[in-house]
Amino acid sequence: MTTILSIRDLRKSYADGFEALKGVSLDIEEGEILALLGPNGAGKTTLISTICGITTPTSGTVSVGGHDIQSDYRAARRMIGLVPQEIALEPFEKVWNTVRLSRGLFGLGKDNARIEDILRKLSLLDKRKNPIKELSGGMKRRVLIAKALAHEPRVLFLDEPTAGVDVELRKDMWEIVAELKRDGVTIILTTHYIEEAEAIADRVGVIDKGELLLVQDKDTLMAQMGKKQIVVMLTEPIAKIPGGLASHNLTLNGAGDSLIYTYDTHADRTGITTLLNDVSQAGLVLRDVQTRQSSLEEIFVNLVSGEAA
């Protein structure tokens, strides 16, 4: 694998003293899909904006395909496509013209066949003569992607591609990403949905408060994050866990009326059926059963404390 994007100790402070990036270092391999997870205000967009040239870094270096984003910005930027988080398009302009503008801005000559190809892939070809204001929200997002692909970038940044998007469109978006990967495009996307990272990424980076907490292979991370809990609520409180349930590694809550079972959603057998059988065998009567999954915030807390330990 070759490294296509290399970030070294990237820092960004604003005039008011706010540090949006506190020394981020990261290597991205050619052809991979990296998902950057993080809560709002974590620095995801600042990181992308800095790499793409919209924001000037305070210190540190970034190179794309060996080209420094500052000293060799033309070559670096030609390799990058950016799909911004907000839908920003000129409403009166036609789809075709705005995509052609994008291609021209990146210094590439007219190539109608290429633009047609991109629009076809994004199911926009029949809308090419429509003014953008006539398109639905989902279509507009596709236009943004078409614009970003117009100059045939090697690296594509998708900033929250599915924020505020309905389930169907989200699936569509994932399919588009998978197809781009097949074409050999390296993709970096930001999201705050774990499921999204899980569905499409090869690697996952977690960013919070301007720091990259970890970058890990998705499967490894999901195994860590995939913990879920079942809370079995009892009609009568008990003083201690009955002997017949010892093998399940349960914990009893303070009031003694709930048993908590932690399991791995990715394991072949979650052990839920056996547990519930054993609970009734032990003569306990259930009042209710709840499941709980750690929220992203909880996972962040775990990650931070895990790093510290």
Binding site: G53, I54, L89, E90, L105, F106
Partner: peptide
């Protein structure tokens, strides 16, 4: 001003120009 207002200025700033 219009690209600034609409947000489409991102494209100019990230293009090799």
């Amino acid at each position: 001003y219009f690209p600034k207002f609409l947000g489409t200025i991102y494209e100019l700033l990230s293009a090799p120009v």
